[in-house]
Design a protein around this nucleic acid. Structure first.
Length: 141
DNA sequence: GCCAACGTTGGC
DNA sequence: GCCAACGTTGGC
C-alpha cells in the first residue's frame, strides 16, 4: 500500500470539506508528473492532505476509496490508453493532531530529498515509506 | 506583489 | 526538433 501527498488550495477544497462531505472526487491536476503519480493511486492507498496558500501544512489523512479513473469532466485517453486526466475518490481518515508545516519540513534534514521540498509546484507525489513514518509520528496521523 | 521554477506554445 | 517567449503555480 502506497502513501501519497496531495496538495490542495483550502479555499477550493479543504480537508474539512472532505470530512463534512464524507467523500470527494479529487483531481483537476494537469501537470504531467503529478498525473503520472495520481494514475498510480490504488484503492486502499492513503494520502496526506497538504494545504497550499497561506497555510502550507499537512492537515489530515485520507484514503483512496476508488483507484484513479478517467476524469468525467475531462474525458480522453493518452496514446498508452491511460486516462489523460485522472481523478481518485477519497474518504477522510482523520485530521492531524498537530499539523506539519512546510517550514518544519524544510528545516528537517530527513526531508531534504522529498519532492515537496525539491519541486514546489508538484501537486501529487508519492511519500517514501521512511518519510511516511516520520510524518505520521510528527502529525499524530 | 514579486519572483523562481517549471510547463507549454509557436515560429523557424 | 529546438528554443525563445509566455503562462502558471506556489512560496516568500
Amino acid at each position: 500500500m502506497a502513501t501519497f501527498l496531495l496538495k490542495t488550495e483550502p479555499g477550493e477544497f479543504a480537508f474539512d470539506d472532505l470530512v463534512r462531505d464524507k467523500s470527494a472526487v479529487w483531481g483537476g491536476v494537469s501537470n504531467p508528473a503529478a498525473l503520472k503519480h495520481l494514475r498510480a493511486a490504488a484503492k486502499g492507498d492513503e494520502a496526506f492532505i497538504y494545504h497550499t496558500g497561506d497555510e502550507r501544512q499537512i492537515v489530515g489523512l485520507a484514503r483512496v476509496s476508488r483507484a484513479s479513473y478517467e476524469d468525467p469532466a475531462r474525458p480522453g485517453l493518452t496514446p498508452d490508453g491511460e486516462p489523460k486526466f485522472a481523478v481518485v475518490d477519497l474518504v477522510p481518515v482523520r485530521a492531524a493532531k498537530t499539523p506539519l508545516t512546510l517550514a518544519a519540513i524544510k528545516a528537517d534534514a530527513q526531508f531534504s530529498a522529498f519532492e515537496l521540498v525539491r519541486q514546489s509546484r508538484l501537486s501529487v507525489m508519492p511519500v517514501p515509506t521512511a518519510l511516511d513514518k516520520v510524518i505520521r509520528s510528527l502529525t499524530g496521523l
